[in-house]
Amino acid sequence: MVDITAKLGRLKLDNPTVLASGILGVTKASLKYVASNGAGAVTMKSVTVEPRAGHHAPIILTYEGGMLNSVGYSNQGIKEAKKEFISLKDVGAPVIASITAGSKKDFAFLAEQVNEMGFAAVEAVISCPHTPGFGTMAGQGTPDSTREITAAVRDKTKLPLFVKLSPSVQGIGEVAKAAEDAGADAITAINTGGPGMIIDVKTGKPILGGTVGGLSGDALRPIAVRCVYDIYKSVRIPIIGTGGVMTGEHAAQMILAGASAVGIGTAVYYRGADVFRKVCDELQGVMKEAGYKNIYGMRGMAHEE
């Protein structure tokens, strides 16, 4: 029997699949729905200080190589979120708070707000590629900015702290190390890439409401696997390997590269909300065939000579 329980620091998961922030997860009921479809943990859609309607639609497109999204951080804002995300034990899986802001002051404020809500961990997202005032468009994700924001959040919370990184940097290992040094307990790697653009040739106009969108899915996966591989060499804290994971085989690639858990988002589109259960079943098959008894024994094996 293959053991697929996973550990992210002190956070124990029944299986390594984690709903990535931004796909479903707008409401507590939505998180519960994903948990009932087999996710080992679920991440809420990122919350900001103020409510946001997000970009105009289309916010999600898919093409031959994957998905582009320009959701633009639509969310109820922290005040309403504190009423929405209550009694989180009902969700049926550990719930990760996702916070994002344009400044370290707002990050610290949000960290303080989500502290007593029953979340299992808090994820600071410093890597959105398509929302003005946030993430890479606000200059976040450099080693210095990463260190500052991580330290500011660390100062306000005792919850396990995850930091979600962008692939669009030189030397992602260095950025991950900055987060680790500033007190992060895990790295979520990676956010969407790009940004990219798709133009409708008949009207001559970009299709996404936000003009550009973060790239995910098949096109992103090899980059995500490489990022996890690089980060594993640079830090000792666990990694949530996220980016284009659709199957158990993809999850296995992430774990071999160094991930302790795997984030899943875009695959909900390709394989349905029960993709979590499917990935777990397939992963067990892959592990059995390759002779791995558990995730710990498999983690980072791609680095072995």
């Binding site: 796909i23 409401t27 009921a29 959701v71 639509s74 875009t266 909300a273």
Partner: peptide, 19 residues
């Protein structure tokens, strides 16, 4: 509804949470 194909979560209903 923002996407129409069950990904964005805008139309998830209480209590079941399906889009």
């Amino acid at each position: 509804m923002k996407c129409g194909f069950g990904v964005c979560g805008s139309c998830s209903v209480d209590d079941q949470g399906f889009p």
